[in-house]
Design a protein around this nucleic acid. Structure first.
Lengths: 122, 122
DNA sequence: CAGAATCCTCCGCGATACTG
DNA sequence: CAGTATCGCGGAGGATTCTG
């Protein structure tokens, strides 16, 4: 598993929230997970396939985040011994279990486009 | 609204996920929101009330995160002109709209305690 | 095509001390 | 009680170059 980003959890019941956030935190992890989830049914994506869907990520960071997702057991990496090389990324069962979380994040983002609306003010 | 943490969003549909994550990212925001949501029905909490629920946060960071949540329109801050001072924090409507997100985060954290289970391996 | 290796910058976060 | 004010570090993450 990836290194602990934040040393200690302060375990009140809120601890679970904190713990989950730590795992999907990392600038690109949420989006990666989203794209893998979106490729139904057994959504496998290749490295450059992911890059194409995320124009602003550098290879260094994409590799980096994928490795962490792999270490945390969310993503499985399949390397085909071919030339040119082919590598596929797909979600593990654990990765798929994050679907409700990602859906909630996306739903909220879609609904509350960016800025606070006036009706939400108070 | 708080400063943009990550410069540019790469707006594919995954953008919404990224945008939401940016707002609740910040080491303590998730837990703060959780505790405010947990205090039903109109859950107001005072500064030290929050501190008590989050043993590991420093005042500096608690203040900091609360200010950002306020700037992002999630939390309302009420100052009572009294001695000793009293300040209450409560969620705005926008803040309450995050409930499904926080619930999803907590549900996942509770279910998948920490480490990957074997059944989740593949 | 899918990366590895380096270098470097910025700022999130913590520790500590002081205050109306 | 509910903050501010400083100081400093560690590491996330970007830019660039090279490779099987």
């Amino acid at each position: 598993m990836a290194r602990i980003r934040h040393r200690s959890l302060d375990c009140s019941p809120g601890c679970a929230v904190e713990a989950t956030l730590q795992l999907i935190d990392g600038k690109w992890k949420g989006v990666i997970l989203y794209h893998l989830l979106a490729e139904a049914p057994d959504g496998a994506l290749r490295f450059n396939g992911l890059r194409r869907r995320m124009p602003n990520v550098t290879q260094r960071m994409l590799t980096n985040q994928l490795r962490e997702l792999e270490a945390d057991g969310f993503v499985h990496r399949t390397v085909y011994a071919e030339v040119p090389p082919r590598v596929e990324y797909r979600l593990t069962a654990r990765g798929r279990s994050l679907e409700p979380v990602i859906r909630a994040l996306k739903a909220w983002g879609d609904a509350h486009a960016a800025l606070p609306t006036e009706t939400e003010a108070a």
